[in-house]
Simulated scan of single mutants.
Amino acid sequence: MTDLELILEAAREAGALAVSARDKGLKIWSKDGGSPVTDADLAVDALLKTRLRQARPDYGWLSEETVDDPARLDTARQFLVDPIDGTAAYLKGKPWFAVSIAVVEAGRPVAGVVLAPALDETYAARAGGGATLNGVPIAPSAAVHLEGAAMLGDAKMFAHPAWPAPWPPMRVESRNSIAYRLCLVAAGTFDAAIAMSPKNEWDLAAADLICAEAGAALTDHLGRGFAYNEAIPLLPSLVCANRALHPLILSRVGHIDLPQR
């Protein structure tokens, strides 16, 4: 079984568990930083950790819901996992949450799956093999102008008066799951996605490969690509778009000074 086949099977099991756990009722509490977590997050994490590490015991492990073990830094390949990305939507009964699983080698994802179980959408990719949605190849949109673009991001951010030049009129929407947002751009459902706040490696790794294989561009706001399995698994920002819009967005956000990891 290939890595992609393995994580596809595991993601399907995890997605089914997430849906059934929400249907049964959740126990909810807050992490140290104040963000919500549920018993389902931990149950899905445990399922994936058992399933994947039994199949690949030599792979490292980095997950939102597992205490980080620096031993992963010395492994040749790693699983990067977000058991339930988009917990806020998950808690509210919305469909915009996803299971995100990537296999990383030498700092880059080589297999990735983002599965949105409530929407029956499975995005998948392997390095050099293209990207798919439910088995059908995907590609980003052909939009060439920001005006009128379908943008995923914070509407208040775009409307802020501090921008050197106002953003043109755009259709701005939000989706809680970061991984799912990026997949929507990779598939051409939206034209671009922007976030000017730090994101964790497990949020982006699988979707990064899906975007690359689909033909979308994903970088930080300075146009730099991402490396994974770092000692501090935090990324400063994200700009994701088709190849025409990506440089137009960078020209508007590149002046922003954000903390680096």
Rank of each mutant, 00 (worst) to 15 (best):
L4W: 06
L6Y: 09
A18M: 03
G25K: 12
G25Q: 12
G25F: 12
G34Q: 09
S35M: 12
V37K: 01
T38N: 01
T38E: 01
A46P: 00
T50D: 12
Q54E: 13
Q54H: 11
A55P: 01
R56C: 10
G60T: 06
D69T: 03
F79H: 02
L80A: 01
A89Y: 10
A89G: 13
Y90M: 01
G93T: 01
K94P: 00
V103H: 03
A106F: 05
V110I: 15
V113R: 07
L119E: 13
E121W: 06
R126S: 06
G129T: 12
G130N: 14
G135M: 10
V136F: 05
D154Q: 04
A162R: 15
P166E: 05
W167H: 07
V172E: 01
E173A: 14
N176C: 05
S177K: 04
S177I: 00
Y180C: 00
V185E: 04
A186M: 13
G188E: 08
T189N: 06
I194E: 00
S197W: 11
S197H: 01
K199T: 02
K199F: 03
D203T: 05
A205W: 05
A206I: 03
A214P: 08
G215F: 10
G215I: 11
A217S: 15
L218W: 10
L222V: 09
L222D: 07
N229E: 08
L235K: 14
L238S: 07
L238I: 13
C240V: 14
N242G: 12
N242A: 05
L250T: 08
G254V: 10
I256E: 06
D257M: 08
